[in-house]
Amino acid sequence: MKNSKKDKVLFMAPTIIVLLATTVFPLAYSLVISLFDWNLVKPDTKWKFVGLKNYIETLKNPGYLASLRITFIYVIAAVVLEVVLGILLALLAYQQVLGSRILRTVVISAMVISPVVVGTAWRLMYNPGYGLINYFLDRIGIGGYGFLADAKTVIPAILLADIWEWTPLVFLIVLSSLPNVSVDALEAAGIDGANAFQRFFYITLPSLKPSILLAVLMRTMDAFKQYDLIYAMTQGGPGVASQNVNILMYNTAFQYFNVSKASAMAVISVILINMISSILLKVTRREG
């Protein structure tokens, strides 16, 4: 097969140029303006060089650290719960009972709906006056609680919507690799007296490991970037109780127009995401 250099360049160049323009260029631009003290509503501040001041102030800012804490709690809770529930759901759908096909179709629809619509739907569900969740809770005698208006319950309440939306991703990935689990091994273990739990933990789970790690990697990256769903449900409220770093960055850049500080935060986020994903990739490579 001939592989002329011209072909390679022609085929790859458009993609590489677009990706450079949309990722490398913005990163460089953000790095530069994060060293200045630029506020869009104060034009005279544009070229005031301040060095690492924005980074130092950000890392000392209790509001930023609080939002970072919310982000990490959110990511860890979402990923752990979605992976566990996704595996259970895949095992359930793998049992051929009446409705398993419908289950797959219905569950897939959750992840293709716009997160803003998902947020709107769940906001409506949580409404203390006429939302469905409180309606059912009322039936058993608890109801009428504003879950999204209470700083203590707002994160779990949003997490529930996130789990509803993204467990299907884990479900699909795991479901696709369930046929790879060796039936012979399962039967042999059954004959040797292993119970259902032992069979799951010693045979099924190890063979699902690569796909579970893929799911963990993807969900971690996306949960870290989560913005739409939270914004549609609470806009970061009540107060700042559900304000993760992404909402804080948006507010800093487009409510207060402090683009330099927001860029510094974005660069910190890029560094964090890179660290987390390279750790996860390392684990994946070692296990896979």
Partner: peptide, 16 residues
């Protein structure tokens, strides 16, 4: 990996 970048990283430069 370009998927990993938080959208705000592109949004600020392109907004300006």
């Amino acid at each position: 990996s370009t998927r990993m970048a938080p959208p705000i990283l592109c949004a600020i430069p392109y907004y300006i």
